[in-house]
Design a binder for these strands. Structure first.
Lengths: 157, 157
DNA sequence: GGCCAACGTTGGTTCAACCAACGTAACAGA
DNA sequence: TCTGTTACGTTGGTTGAACCAACGTTGGCC
């Protein structure tokens, strides 16, 4: 098992303990811990990048790698590497776009769609576990506030 | 400048967009971006680990590296490396504990205290920038919810 | 026909967070 | 007192996510 050490135990230094950046890093750590647990339990040796690419691909239909990179905010060099892994596992296919031979047209296979569906369920379960400390109403509130912090758009006063 | 690319622009795939894990990773990305910006602007080539160690050290007074590692949740091997850098910059001192020669007693120098104070101000400013999208009341609410998510303690129903 | 931009690829880097193994030192039990 | 076990600091790795630079190929535009 790769359950994260969860070194929750002892209190952090006072200078650090209550800062948003610190709480955020701990929450993120917990989140990635749950995710990698989930990905591992799901088998298939996939990680976040794989899921994001499969999700984008399902939504867009066949597209170029560059476009996939833009819609997932994954660097195109990483897209290359991760797609190669997905192709090895027959979850996607890549063919040169006949209309523009610079482009690789990426499309999902039937197996890829199956894997995406499977991962979907796993990841949904993880959201529930992550947010379990909050009531349903608190979860909604939290997500709304978190979204604004993530977006970082400061409204004019 | 190392201002993060902030590739906020285009929307993530629908499967991903509204998940807590995704929002958390984006908020965390923004947070670390602001932090590294701040550390860079502060000069001195220090990063999060350095600050955490200095903060813990100031709070505890002279202690062993192992103890420092426990109170900051930093692996002891990383503590070793980062303390060596802090010592190079004369921000901390290390001496063998005469009462237990396995231990390195770490203490802060005057310069270290000064650096900590300086970084404190920088980091406080970053909290403000990070939470700027929220009103003061929302910030309090957000921090409370975030703390519970970070702690991950699921209360009995 | 030339020039520039886009694309995919290779091969790096960084930071935080880990783990394993080792020698030295202290300690606890027989 | 010896003996086994733990604690400590150190060295030297690995991982995942996010990056950047440079290159050859291809396409579009003037």
């Amino acid at each position: 098992m790769t359950t994260p050490p969860s070194h929750a135990g002892l209190p952090a230094p006072a200078r650090v303990r209550d800062r948003a950046t610190w709480l955020l890093s701990r929450a993120y750590l917990r989140s990635t811990g749950l995710l990698s647990e989930g990905f591992e339990a799901a088998g298939g040796d996939l990680r976040g990048y794989h899921y994001r690419l499969l999700a984008a691909l399902e939504e867009s239909g066949p597209v170029s790698q560059a476009s996939l990179g833009r819609s997932t905010s994954i660097d195109r060099s990483d897209v290359t590497a991760v797609l190669a892994e997905l192709e090895d596992r027959r979850l996607v296919e890549r063919t040169v776009d006949p209309d523009d031979r610079r482009r690789n047209l990426v499309s999902m296979t039937r197996a890829g769609m199956g894997e995406l569906t499977r991962l979907d369920r796993v990841i949904s379960g993880i959201q529930d576990r992550l947010l379990a400390p909050l009531s349903a109403a608190e979860q909604r509130r939290f997500l709304e506030l978190l979204r604004r912090v993530a977006d970082g758009v400061t409204p004019p006063p």
